[in-house]
């Protein structure tokens, strides 16, 4: 997948290979979340192209892009707070539902079987992510770290090939962060995911990602392995510069 030449994001292009774990870093306001919004169709890119598995998806609506196997989490957690954790995950299975509306309205077996399967699979995902015991709690009532995990579970339930994580470790303590590294690696292997993530926690990024892309003022300024990035003078400059602002 690649795209380039975007609005709040000027000159950016990235190509992801299947199974990769890529980090997108950069100072605040560098346009990282904008990149996510454009990939998922939440914002329409004014210029440039987004190619996904050979198809141009630049102008597809959000839900159509999800149906093609790209899912995301949100930086400012956006769970369905009044629904249970289980329901939050089950929502993500809906776009694959085969049973018709009337099957559901009349409670026909065709629908009931699918509902049962969706429920089992959702519980499985919750189990995997370590939230099974909270399945019937309201999402809005969960502690912060759990909400972040639930966001991942929900995105995972759309059965994506590409998972975009917007600051998945934000607000987590060091131990939770390290657990997250393990979890994401496991999920990648188990579901053969490609993961692109935004994160400010450098330790986390350096430890988890195989490749890192640095974005500053909407331009990509560096790309490489964690080791390469750590010693890149442009990156150091961008970060020092932004620290002065902060």
């Amino acid at each position: 997948m690649r795209f380039g030449g975007l609005a709040a994001v000027n000159d950016f292009s990235i190509t992801l290979h299947p199974g990769e774990l890529v980090g997108l870093i950069g100072p605040n306001g560098a346009g990282k979340t904008t990149v996510f919004n454009m990939i998922t169709g939440a914002i329409l890119a004014t210029a440039g192209r987004i190619i996904w598995q050979g198809e141009n998806i630049t102008h597809l609506p959000l839900h159509a892009i999800t149906a093609r196997g790209i899912a995301r989490t949100f930086q400012n957690i956006r769970l369905f707070s009044d629904l249970t954790a289980l329901d939050n995950v089950m929502v993500s299975f809906h776009h694959k539902l085969r049973a018709h509306l009337w099957d559901a309205m009349l409670g026909l077996p065709a629908y009931r079987r699918e509902e049962h399967r969706m429920r089992e699979e959702s519980l499985e995902i919750l189990q995997e992510i370590g939230l099974a015991h909270l399945a019937l709690e309201k999402a809005g009532a969960l502690p912060y770290g759990r909400q972040r995990r639930l966001e991942i579970a929900r995105a995972l339930a759309t059965r994506p090939k590409l998972l975009l994580l917007d600051e998945p470790a934000a607000g987590m303590n060091p131990q939770e962060t390290m657990e997250l590294v393990e979890l994401l690696r496991d999920l990648r292997d188990k579901y053969s995911l490609t993961i692109l993530l935004i994160e400010h926690d450098m330790k986390f990024v350096m430890r988890l990602c195989e490749r890192i892309k640095v974005l500053d003022y909407g331009n990509s300024i560096a790309e490489g392995t964690p080791r390469e990035i750590q010693s890149n003078p442009d990156v150091i400059k961008a970060y020092l510069g932004s620290q002065r602002h902060a």
Partner: peptide, 14 residues
């Protein structure tokens, strides 16, 4: 209900 809670998030879940 998901659309009621957060339309953007619901769309992102397909």
């Amino acid at each position: 209900k998901a659309l009621r809670e957060d339309e953007t998030a619901a769309r992102a879940m397909g």
